[in-house]
Amino acid sequence: MGFGSNWIETKKGRKGILKDLSKLYKKNETKDFTIIVEDEKEIKVHKLILLLRSELFKGMISKVGKSHQVYDYSGKSFETINQLII
Protein backbone atom coordinates (compact mmCIF):
# COMPACT_ATOMS: atom_id res chain seq x y z
CA MET A 1 0.00 0.00 0.00
CA GLY A 2 1.54 3.27 -1.08
CA PHE A 3 0.67 6.81 -1.89
CA GLY A 4 -0.55 7.54 -5.37
CA SER A 5 0.49 10.71 -7.14
CA ASN A 6 -3.15 11.89 -7.11
CA TRP A 7 -3.28 11.63 -3.32
CA ILE A 8 -0.35 13.96 -2.66
CA GLU A 9 -0.58 17.43 -4.15
CA THR A 10 2.23 19.87 -3.57
CA LYS A 11 2.26 23.52 -4.44
CA LYS A 12 5.60 24.96 -5.39
CA GLY A 13 7.03 28.32 -4.64
CA ARG A 14 6.19 31.29 -2.49
CA LYS A 15 2.70 31.77 -3.93
CA GLY A 16 1.70 28.24 -2.94
CA ILE A 17 2.78 28.58 0.68
CA LEU A 18 1.23 32.03 1.01
CA LYS A 19 -2.06 30.74 -0.35
CA ASP A 20 -2.00 27.79 2.06
CA LEU A 21 -1.18 30.00 5.05
CA SER A 22 -3.99 32.37 4.10
CA LYS A 23 -6.48 29.50 4.07
CA LEU A 24 -5.18 28.17 7.39
CA TYR A 25 -5.34 31.64 8.98
CA LYS A 26 -9.07 31.85 8.26
CA LYS A 27 -10.02 28.42 9.67
CA ASN A 28 -11.27 28.58 13.25
CA GLU A 29 -10.88 24.84 13.80
CA THR A 30 -7.08 25.08 13.42
CA LYS A 31 -6.66 28.01 15.82
CA ASP A 32 -4.93 26.80 18.98
CA PHE A 33 -4.87 29.82 21.29
CA THR A 34 -7.50 32.09 22.79
CA ILE A 35 -7.04 35.68 23.91
CA ILE A 36 -9.65 36.90 26.35
CA VAL A 37 -10.23 40.65 26.46
CA GLU A 38 -12.60 42.94 28.30
CA ASP A 39 -16.19 41.77 28.65
CA GLU A 40 -14.88 38.17 28.43
CA LYS A 41 -14.87 38.26 24.64
CA GLU A 42 -12.66 35.62 23.03
CA ILE A 43 -10.39 35.97 20.04
CA LYS A 44 -9.23 32.65 18.56
CA VAL A 45 -5.76 32.75 17.00
CA HIS A 46 -2.86 30.64 15.78
CA LYS A 47 -0.17 30.70 18.46
CA LEU A 48 2.63 30.21 15.92
CA ILE A 49 1.56 33.23 13.88
CA LEU A 50 1.47 35.42 16.99
CA LEU A 51 4.92 34.19 18.03
CA LEU A 52 6.35 35.05 14.63
CA ARG A 53 4.71 38.42 14.17
CA SER A 54 4.36 40.15 17.53
CA GLU A 55 6.80 40.73 20.38
CA LEU A 56 3.85 41.77 22.57
CA PHE A 57 2.05 38.47 22.09
CA LYS A 58 5.30 36.50 22.16
CA GLY A 59 5.86 37.81 25.69
CA MET A 60 2.28 37.04 26.72
CA ILE A 61 2.48 33.50 25.34
CA SER A 62 5.81 32.79 27.04
CA LYS A 63 4.29 33.78 30.40
CA VAL A 64 1.41 31.31 30.17
CA GLY A 65 3.54 28.39 28.96
CA LYS A 66 1.53 25.53 27.48
CA SER A 67 -1.83 27.04 28.41
CA HIS A 68 -4.24 27.79 25.59
CA GLN A 69 -5.42 31.10 26.97
CA VAL A 70 -3.95 34.44 27.83
CA TYR A 71 -5.86 37.21 29.57
CA ASP A 72 -5.25 40.71 28.36
CA TYR A 73 -4.99 42.80 31.52
CA SER A 74 -4.18 46.00 29.67
CA GLY A 75 -7.83 47.04 29.55
CA LYS A 76 -7.82 47.14 25.77
CA SER A 77 -11.07 46.59 23.96
CA PHE A 78 -11.93 43.62 21.77
CA GLU A 79 -11.72 45.86 18.69
CA THR A 80 -8.24 47.12 19.59
CA ILE A 81 -6.75 43.67 20.16
CA ASN A 82 -8.51 42.25 17.13
CA GLN A 83 -6.95 44.98 14.95
CA LEU A 84 -3.50 44.05 16.29
CA ILE A 85 -4.03 40.45 15.23
CA ILE A 86 -5.49 41.06 11.78
Score class of each variant (00 low, 15 high):
residue 1 M to R: 10
residue 1 M to W: 08
residue 1 M to S: 07
residue 3 F to T: 14
residue 4 G to M: 08
residue 4 G to K: 05
residue 5 S to R: 14
residue 6 N to I: 02
residue 6 N to V: 07
residue 6 N to F: 09
residue 7 W to I: 01
residue 8 I to Q: 12
residue 8 I to P: 06
residue 9 E to T: 10
residue 10 T to C: 04
residue 11 K to L: 10
residue 12 K to Q: 13
residue 13 G to L: 00
residue 14 R to H: 08
residue 14 R to Q: 09
residue 14 R to P: 09
residue 15 K to F: 01
residue 15 K to D: 13
residue 16 G to A: 03
residue 16 G to W: 00
residue 17 I to H: 06
residue 17 I to T: 15
residue 18 L to C: 05
residue 20 D to P: 00
residue 21 L to S: 15
residue 22 S to V: 14
residue 25 Y to L: 13
residue 26 K to H: 15
residue 28 N to Q: 14
residue 28 N to K: 14
residue 29 E to R: 13
residue 30 T to D: 12
residue 32 D to P: 04
residue 32 D to L: 13
residue 33 F to R: 03
residue 33 F to T: 04
residue 34 T to R: 12
residue 34 T to W: 06
residue 34 T to Y: 08
residue 36 I to F: 00
residue 36 I to V: 02
residue 36 I to Q: 02
residue 38 E to S: 07
residue 40 E to V: 10
residue 40 E to P: 03
residue 40 E to L: 04
residue 41 K to G: 04
residue 43 I to C: 06
residue 44 K to E: 05
residue 45 V to N: 01
residue 46 H to D: 14
residue 46 H to G: 07
residue 46 H to Y: 01
residue 47 K to V: 12
residue 47 K to T: 10
residue 49 I to N: 07
residue 49 I to E: 01
residue 52 L to W: 02
residue 52 L to V: 03
residue 53 R to S: 15
residue 53 R to I: 05
residue 55 E to F: 15
residue 56 L to K: 03
residue 56 L to E: 05
residue 58 K to L: 13
residue 59 G to D: 09
residue 59 G to S: 05
residue 59 G to I: 15
residue 62 S to Q: 10
residue 63 K to A: 14
residue 63 K to V: 00
residue 64 V to M: 12
residue 65 G to M: 08
residue 65 G to P: 04
residue 66 K to N: 11
residue 67 S to N: 08
residue 68 H to R: 08
residue 68 H to K: 08
residue 68 H to C: 12
residue 68 H to N: 12
residue 68 H to W: 09
residue 69 Q to G: 01
residue 70 V to E: 13
residue 70 V to C: 12
residue 70 V to A: 14
residue 72 D to M: 10
residue 73 Y to L: 06
residue 74 S to V: 04
residue 74 S to A: 02
residue 75 G to P: 04
residue 76 K to L: 00
residue 76 K to A: 01
residue 76 K to V: 05
residue 77 S to K: 03
residue 77 S to W: 07
residue 78 F to C: 04
residue 79 E to N: 15
residue 80 T to I: 15
residue 80 T to Q: 13
residue 83 Q to M: 15
residue 84 L to V: 01
residue 86 I to K: 08
